[in-house]
Nucleic acid binder design. Structure first.
Lengths: 149, 149
DNA sequence: CCTATTTGGTTGCAAGTGAAACTATCGTGT
DNA sequence: ACACGATAGTTTCACTTGCAACCAAATAGG
């Protein structure tokens, strides 16, 4: 019609659709089987793999808003999947730690989640999946550069 | 800590963060300068480049929910950027068409939007950006395959 | 020290979104 | 011609989310 612009080739659009599609399918795994939403899953995963963190730490590494974290933490604490203790070094902050049952949940969840990722990648030729991962790494760097501009 | 799982290497997480980051920065272009939100931008772009479409058509090509489209269309029609006419072939449907002022807006917007995409890609080595695009194409196919499973 | 600014975290509010219910119309089968 | 299920689009509702205002504690500057 007008111009040769194709929305379906437009990088931001493609990223959005892919992320959305992948996210929806993935979250159905931990939502239905483990009753976690996306923020909760991210917090669990970070605490399980990185050790104790404050909400602020999580905000930085998981790119989440602090209000989202605050709410997700309440839920996780209520279910005793994580535990909050005052940070001795900073009276405003709380150290978040995953509990034993949180670890168990994570251990049960992880295989499913990894299997899903592998399903996605296994459908691709290995040269293509390698290209994807390389490209994503490069794009991540590019976004950071633009960000600081 | 526990397992070698790294959330920051996990494909769904990476896609999410990237899409989110890119989307936010892009939408600030058309939000502040042209008062469009994401659904509206997508509708304008599709109508500008593909010609007349029904809401249903847009839902399919742009992966949007019909309720989202319905609301976005109202706003665009109110601003006379698009126009709705009853579909002669189907009494339930409406043909959506971009108006002259809609086209003008799109023409003004397009260069900014393309420049943003180019900014992203230009920061990457051309081998890396090629890898990215190839990988995304392959992943798109992979997601579709899993979807039908 | 004492004030001013910043920072960690929580909460209220407004906006956006998906699911589902609903209306109107279409298409199929009988 | 009619009844049925499917489909286009709108709207209501519940829920999520980001932003901004807020409180408490920390840090910086005079």
């Amino acid at each position: 019609m007008m111009d040769a612009f194709k929305l379906e080739d437009f990088l931001p659009f493609r990223l959005n659709v892919l992320a959305q599609e992948v996210s929806t399918r993935l979250s159905s795994i931990y939502a239905t089987r483990f009753n976690l939403d996306i923020p909760q899953w991210r917090i669990i995963a970070n605490l399980a793999t990185r050790g104790d963190l404050t909400a602020q730490d999580i905000a930085r590494v998981a790119f989440m808003h602090k209000s989202t974290i605050s709410r997700a933490v309440s839920g996780l604490e209520r279910r005793k999947l994580i535990q909050r203790t005052a940070d001795p070094a900073d009276g405003r902050a709380y150290k978040l730690r995953i509990t034993a049952s949180g670890k168990t949940l994570f251990k049960n969840l992880l295989p499913d989640v990894l299997a899903f990722e592998q399903d996605l990648l296994k459908q691709m030729k290995s040269s293509e999946s390698a290209a994807l991962l390389r490209g994503l790494t490069s794009l991540e760097a590019s976004v950071l550069k633009i960000k600081s501009t």
